[in-house]
Design a protein around this nucleic acid. Structure first.
Lengths: 245, 245
DNA sequence: CGAGCTCTTGATTTCTTTCAAACCGTGTGG
DNA sequence: CCACACGGTTTGAAAGAAATCAAGAGCTCG
């Protein structure tokens, strides 16, 4: 299964300089110049099955997790159980930016594995201290944080103002872009291991309606998909839908 | 009009230690111990009429604004003009947290005045340098940022998962809480100078439907309101609606 | 006093949900 | 190796929530 995610299939920790994802992480620049600092700071590698809690909402975490393989997602639940997914996390992502900026914080969301995941865990304090303050490192941190905020704000606008088709198109394009940047997929096809239920929870829709909308797009040959992959057949059309609907 | 907001009605800049809102700002602790530092850092006071642009989306701002009186709001617009309000800003709020954390950033949202506003503007660089790093100051920054993020995440979940009544109740309670913390209102009544159109844009609804929902709650005697104020008549009921719907 | 907003209400349409059932692939046990 | 159970997907029919269209009422400000 991990092999399907295209990263690693062994349980043996590797040093960060051998990690194909290292350069994409928040600490990428630090790893490049000085990888042993990071490797030494790593506390452990955690292996988790699919659909397991990684952190709970309200936790005061002093650990910092990076995803080495597999997908996870941040979410909140309402008192009656309705769930809203705030973001999907893919290999190279950090579980919680807020912990990096100010710790310890009571997390405003929970995080759960979507597929089996391998997590690199660090202790927040020493980790932050270990981030050398090169201009590159600072910029990387800033850029990653900005991108995260940007996608969060966009999400509010999308959910608030777009139709189901538009939201879906936005989500597909966002994940296409993010997987592509990390060499996990291309603009034609990328891994998308989530169930339609997760898509629904991410877009503020019901599973049934997500299915209908997805099926529409498939019937129009805009996209094609199965349990594990999303294929974009007409990128232009998808972009138009994402922009206009 | 500014008098209605309960703060100031003169154009004359005052020193921060005389400002009734100073202790609520991000630099509150710094002002308390050392207000002259902040007052000296202040570049100018800007006066703006209602419905004027404060910053544009994409701007790389190196100025940092704090609201001294009046309301403003952060928003994004889609390509076809649909608008989503991301947050209302009230006296004591900072226009853009991101600028405080990492600058200069291309702003992921625009900000516009809702009522006439008085802004205290600072240069971002010197301002950040001027924030002395007392534990209190650090904590205040951290707390404010956490609260901001929390309300952002909650907004995603609310818009994605709640019914119109639930969203409205959430918004009213949030603003009740925030104005109350700053002595701008109470749990019974607080200033709420926005048009129903803004409420609609904040909740991802249409004006017409906001009006109907608002009218419902008024008919049920849960709230009462006019152009400038919101009154909560049955706090318990409102809380229940906010929680369950 | 009139022009122009904003708010309010009614009628209708569209989008999305809900409920229900069938379908499909996969893994499991006999 | 087949039957069955299970979780996820798909489809249909009907109900419900929210949007749209349209017009009138009420303020506010020049």
């Amino acid at each position: 299964m991990e092999a399907q995610m295209g990263v690693l299939n062994s349980n043996v920790p590797i040093s960060c300089d051998a990690c194909p994802l290292a350069s994409y992480t928040v600490y990428g620049p630090t790893v490049c110049g000085n990888y042993s600092r990071i490797t030494n700071l790593r506390k452990e590698i955690r292996l988790l099955a699919a659909d397991k809690t990684i952190v709970r909402a309200g936790d005061k975490i002093n650990l910092l997790h990076t995803i080495e393989s597999g997908w996870a997602f941040q979410y909140r639940t309402l008192s009656d159980g309705r769930r809203q997914i705030l973001a999907f996390l893919i290999p190279g992502d950090i579980i919680s930016f807020e912990t990096l900026i100010w710790n310890p914080v009571a997390l405003p969301f929970a995080v759960r594995s979507l597929t089996p995941v391998r997590l690199c865990t660090f202790e927040a304090g020493s980790f932050k201290a270990g981030l050398n303050n090169t201009p590159e490192q600072t910029k990387k941190l800033s850029d990653d944080f900005s991108a995260y905020m940007e996608s969060l704000y966009r999400k509010v606008a999308d959910i608030g103002r777009r139709t189901a088709r538009g939201r879906l198109a936005q989500l597909i394009l966002e994940l296409m872009g993010r997987t592509s940047l990390r060499n996990l997929g291309s603009s034609e096809s990328f891994p998308f291991p989530s169930k339609q239920e997760h898509i629904a929870d991410a877009l503020g829709l019901t599973v049934v309606y997500v299915n209908r909308t997805l099926t529409n797009l498939r019937n129009e040959s805009v996209i094609d998909f199965d349990r594990q992959n999303m294929r974009i057949l007409k990128l232009g059309v998808l972009r138009r839908i994402a922009d206009e609907e």
